[in-house]
Design a protein around this nucleic acid. Structure first.
Lengths: 222, 222, 222, 222
DNA sequence: AATGAATGAGTATTCATTCAT
DNA sequence: GATGAATGAATACTCATTCAT
């Protein structure tokens, strides 16, 4: 929460926000992530932001508007690395091993999520209750990200670097394993002692072995 | 939701519930899982349950009481198989391979979660907003389940059936991979075409290879 | 409140009360006197009395019924000594001085009020809000008591024992002075150190001198 | 009640009240004095004041807040003449007889109470149910007023104008006699025919004779 | 742009009362 | 007679939103 400023400056860099607007968004992120959208009142946000109640509604027509205007840039930035050339770089030049790609992606998303934790919490907590959010999420993440990811998986499957199972399953294992670490690390046990480097290394090894084609062969031929 | 009756009959079998009380709980589960605790009004629950609003408060002092009295048995039943002899069976007789244990546990929990989906949704959605819930969850799941699971992991590590990494990480991989399937299957894409048997088989293979000590050896000795 | 039992046994001696009924009345007196009629809920009374909520309404059609059935005997007993022969005794034989009468009356009413303090509190607190109560009070106290009292005052005025001002004023001075002591003693400063005998003596002297015809004369003829 | 406006303007002159706020206070005084605090609903006050129910809670956080904010200035103004120099005037210059003081004080408080009757009713009716009120009352009235009054009584006792009994008793006689008149006059029998001047004169005479030191002597010497 | 008073529908909860057992 | 589940109207209070300033 102390990093709210930077989050906002980063996530909302394109939009011109007045001082009060920034404070409203900060306060909203803070409260939404802590008590949920329904559990947070606009008056509470106003008080925390140090503005009059009416001011919120001058900038955001409704409370829901405020929520969406907070989540939208988060969604956009989430998929950023997948829609721009970064991914091509991975494919074309930099990393010609699946391991290389994995390490690059984890490093990249790890930093992003770490810096947008409260926003991320809001996103995953509110998605179930707001169909528009779910739709946007599906369209952006599920479609755009998935498509890129799929071709990438097929590419490495053809190079026989990963096992030959449905790409959807491969993607699922990747995401649940990586996000699983992230949830465990930051949402469930944020206060435990964590050796991030080691843990990430173990996680990468687990993924690589789990998806290794050799492993599969061994299992098949007695 | 159509199975609410059976859920209730099953989860609340010990308690003597009046007819109206059952209806209240059904309605509450339905609404809470759909719109969240904060987003659900007691008047809505009353209407859906076909009772007067006052009736709710005759049985549950507060709205939060209602929530807790719904989740408590869910938590208890969640850990049931881990605290009773079932686990010993797994260790002692039935399954002397990690694969055997894995298959048994997935089958068991899969059925349970499938039958308590709405309740499960409520649990994971509300935990972040209710410290008491988190505490109960930690105490029941994290402590009791984790302890059993850990000794089990060590046991199979000693039998050299799984890789020699911190048991906590092994447990994490198991849970995130299995739950990851469950979330994807029932919460994110419940409408997709799923071949459960195949998907579970793939998932088990992924886990086994990811945790296999052979894989590790191969990796270590070129 | 500890004396509730005795109050009830005494005030409600004529009526046949079941055990539960007694407990209801005790609880009602306790709560009404402490929090007022409006501020007391029937469920609270039921709980305090250790009976089911419905039981109250089996004996008293409404909550107000309960209030009235509590105050009615109090009102009746309040005027008892004024409507029976007691007063004639005072006039005829026992006390042929106003002082004698005063001492007798104070002693008599002092004991009565002291033993019915909670009931008395209820009476004076609720009268302003219940026209029926006010009516009953007027009819019983104001009419019956006043009439007796007036003839008594006139009697002593004729005997030149008290000053010759409107009897209504004489009665007012008597009542406000005596009740004034009682309020100060039991309602305002019940925890102070009180020497009742001395205080009552001073009060009687004050009344006697204030109403003395000599005093008046002295004051008139220098 | 018809004078509510003037009461408010007078009692709340220091505070800046919006139009609606004034109406809320008027309505609250009206209802509280008529049906008691517990017996009055906020919706009733809102309706009577011609404002939305929410408006009440914008200005007063709770219903009790409204009550206290009504009574506080009443308490303050009640003791006003006792804490400022007025009293010294009485002692120093104007009145060097107890009778003079008595007449001045009665005249002064008579006007005040007459103009604040509903507020006064609320005060005495609600004090028994609200410990904070009792505390405030004790602190303001019982302490400040009493202290001034006591030194005054001692002063006149030394001048041998009033009888030599405990000052507390003298004060009690004064207050109960004067308030007794006020209660009888305005609360119990407001509809009777009252000759205020005459009645007050009789009351003053009663007090003076009752407290006269001569009377005492007569009584002492056979 | 910003305020904050005002709103009225809505909130969780309490109430006196009823009624089948 | 006694119970306690059930009621629905009422309660104190909150909410998102509007609007005149």
């Amino acid at each position: 929460m102390q990093e709210s400023d930077s989050i906002i400056d980063h996530l909302f860099e394109d939009e011109k926000l007045t001082d009060k607007q920034k404070k409203i968004i900060e306060a909203a992120i803070d409260s939404f992530s802590e008590k949920g959208y329904s559990g947070t009142s606009t008056s509470e946000i106003a008080k925390k932001a140090g503005v009059a109640e009416g001011t919120i509604f001058r900038h955001y027509k409704t409370k829901k508007d405020l929520l969406l205007s907070i989540i939208a840039p988060m969604l956009a930035k989430s998929i950023a690395p997948f829609v721009i050339k970064d991914l091509y770089k991975i494919l074309d030049t930099k990393y010609d091993s699946y391991e290389g790609f994995l390490r690059a992606m984890i490093a990249n998303r790890y930093v992003f999520l770490k810096h947008n934790l409260p926003l991320f919490k809001i996103l995953i907590q509110e998605i179930p209750f707001h169909p528009e959010l779910k739709e946007q999420f599906m369209e952006h993440i599920a479609k755009k990200v998935y498509t890129r990811f799929e071709s990438l998986v097929v590419y490495f499957q053809e190079k026989e670097q990963i096992i030959n199972i449905p790409p959807a399953s491969v993607i699922r294992f990747n995401i649940t394993t990586i996000m699983g670490y992230f949830f465990t690390r930051y949402l469930f046990f944020p206060d435990a002692d964590w050796n991030d480097d080691e843990e990430i290394e173990i996680t990468i090894q687990f993924l690589l072995h789990g998806l290794s084609p050799l492993a599969k062969k061994e299992d098949d031929s007695p």
